[in-house]
């Protein structure tokens, strides 16, 4: 136990406790959180957005602008990892030790054939699960992000079995920049279409449910694709 750290933690804890115990009780139906802006989402969300899952409605329609920059944050993480020095000696920031390690060949631990078989067998089923989450996200829990994470999980599992470089080859080099940026680009496109249709940036035509649904689905696919590729790429970059 380090006394100074403990003191600091207590100094932070005290105001936080004071802050949270003085909030309105969280279960009560008359708490501000249940009488504020959420009332309208619950009352008119389905009719205005066509999404029965109101979390999706908030994410894509009411507060789509937040989600736009949320996917930009994941892209930032990827750009950050790509901008860091590599292990090559030609790189001024690179360390010689890492270069030697890279020249040494891959340091992948051999995987048991059973695991390898199971992973390859499971991959299509996991992909189906991800697609189900993706396309049912407006009525059931789940959506683009969850699908993205499962897609990435498939990539990572295959990567552990086959080696990251072989998995990286699954995505052609020419497509890579576009797939990585799929989520923000999808948002920008939908924002422009919404601007054209409704006169408001990222607007959804509230009276046309077919158009709304198509735009929402396009966003979800963009998020799933872009998010999945980025998470998988992060894995490949860290492995190699």
């Amino acid at each position: 136990m380090k006394p100074w750290s403990l003191l600091l933690v207590l100094l932070v804890a005290l105001p936080l406790v004071v802050g949270v115990v003085n909030l309105p009780p969280h279960d009560a139906p008359d708490a501000p959180i249940h009488t504020g802006v959420g009332v309208r989402y619950l009352a008119r969300g389905v009719e205005e957005t066509g999404n029965k899952n109101l979390v999706t409605a908030v994410l894509l329609n009411y507060r789509g602008f937040d989600t736009f920059f949320e996917v930009v944050v994941i892209f930032t993480a990827l750009a950050a990892v790509l901008a860091l020095p590599r292990g090559s000696a030609a790189d001024p920031g690179g360390a010689p030790a890492a270069a030697a390690k890279a020249a040494n060949g891959s340091d992948i631990v051999p995987v048991s054939p059973v695991v390898s078989y199971v992973v390859r067998l499971m991959a299509p089923f996991m992909a189906m699960f991800a697609l189900a989450m993706l396309f049912r996200g407006h009525v059931t829990p789940g959506g683009g992000f969850q699908a993205a994470a499962v897609f990435a999980a498939i990539f990572i599992a295959l990567g552990l079995v086959l080696g990251p470089t072989r998995v990286a080859e699954l995505v052609p080099d020419d497509w890579r920049p576009w797939l990585q940026g799929a989520a923000p680009l999808a948002f920008a496109l939908i924002a422009a279409i919404g601007w054209r249709l409704t006169g408001a940036f990222l607007g959804f035509p509230t009276d046309d449910h077919t158009a709304q649904e198509a735009m929402g689905l396009f966003l979800e696919v963009g998020i799933a694709l872009g998010g999945g590729v980025i998470l998988a790429r992060l894995f490949v970059e860290m492995e190699t």
Binding site: M133, P141, F145, Q146, A153, L231, L234, F235, E239
Partner: peptide
Amino acid sequence: PDVAMTEAAVGAGVTTVLFLITIAR
């Protein structure tokens, strides 16, 4: 449930894998 699924996939899944890779390296 939405948050739970995301946390299971991203918070528990992806984060853990990234940590494991780092430990390996």
